[in-house]
């Protein structure tokens, strides 16, 4: 299937507008291949550090690197499967009930993951606890269903799920490693410090989650400051239909270049 055909298929989707990526990649009609979609999820629109989605599991389960891996992989499995299925049935779902339909699909895959984890890795299952069933309402998964899978072909949706999932997992491993190192002196259970300092237990407590997330986010923003551009409403896939004048007024009020 060529890119052109894919874009036509996307055009027949629920909302009839181009996918999020086409706008982000300067609106090229044939530019975005699968690798670009993957890369977009991993780096350019990393769900944790760029979209700031899924912060609840990010803060709650990253008390160790292993928990981060478990949570990231579980979410990635659900994300890929739900993206594929939702992309397959995107022309069958009536627009008005699309959110309940998405949730039903996602809940089905979360149940599968939940039972699999319970059966094969009970220790991880108990460590992640309530946050496995809560993947149902993980806003990364719902956001990708709403903004990508229901407007793009199966292959592109799968690539998007893989990219977003890997990006989410990498972010959780990064934050989990930082918290585990500072709070317990280990990474993946390996003692790296030989007890040179007594670890700060605060980093394993809820405040430590906010501190670690904020610190990593600040560093990433600082490093990539010169590479990011404020693109405003043109990159927004929601197309709220706001007029130029209103947008300019809002931009003045918010001082953010028109991004809504």
């Amino acid at each position: 299937m060529s890119d052109n055909a894919e874009n036509k298929a996307a055009g027949g989707g629920a909302s009839g507008s181009a996918g999020a990526l086409d706008a982000a990649n300067a609106g090229g009609s044939a530019g975005a291949n699968l690798l670009t979609v993957f890369r977009n999820g991993l780096l350019d629109e990393n769900p944790t550090f760029r979209l700031i989605l899924g912060t609840c599991p990010t803060l709650a389960v990253t008390t160790s690197a292993v928990n981060g891996v478990g949570m990231g992989l579980s979410a990635m499995a659900v994300l890929i499967c739900s993206n594929i299925v939702i992309s397959l049935i995107r022309n069958l779902i009536p627009d008005t009930v699309r959110i309940p339909a998405f949730i039903t699909v996602i809940a089905g895959f979360v149940t599968i993951v939940d039972l699999l984890l319970h059966a094969f890795v009970p220790s991880l299952y108990s460590a992640l606890g309530i946050f496995i069933p809560l993947i149902v309402v993980n806003c990364i998964i719902l956001a990708r269903a709403e903004m990508f899978a229901c407007k793009n072909s199966v292959a592109r949706s799968a690539a998007d799920g893989l990219g977003m999932g890997v990006g989410f997992t990498a972010a959780l491993i990064l934050i989990g490693s930082l918290r585990e190192f500072l709070g317990n002196g280990t990474i993946f259970g390996i003692d790296l410090t030989q007890r040179l300092f007594s670890p700060a237990a605060l980093m394993l407590l809820p405040p430590g989650g906010f501190l670690a997330y904020g610190a990593v986010l600040a560093v990433i923003n600082k490093v990539t400051r010169n590479k990011t551009a404020v693109v405003g409403c043109d990159a927004c896939p929601l197309r709220c239909g706001m007029k130029d004048g209103e947008r300019a007024g809002l931009a003045d009020a918010r001082g953010n270049g028109g991004a809504v």
Binding site: S198, P199, A200, A201, L202, M203, L205, P207
Partner: peptide, 10 residues
């Protein structure tokens, strides 16, 4: 409080 929650014993 950061120190108290981090190093309660000390």
């Amino acid at each position: 409080v950061v120190m108290l929650t981090s190093w309660g014993a000390s």
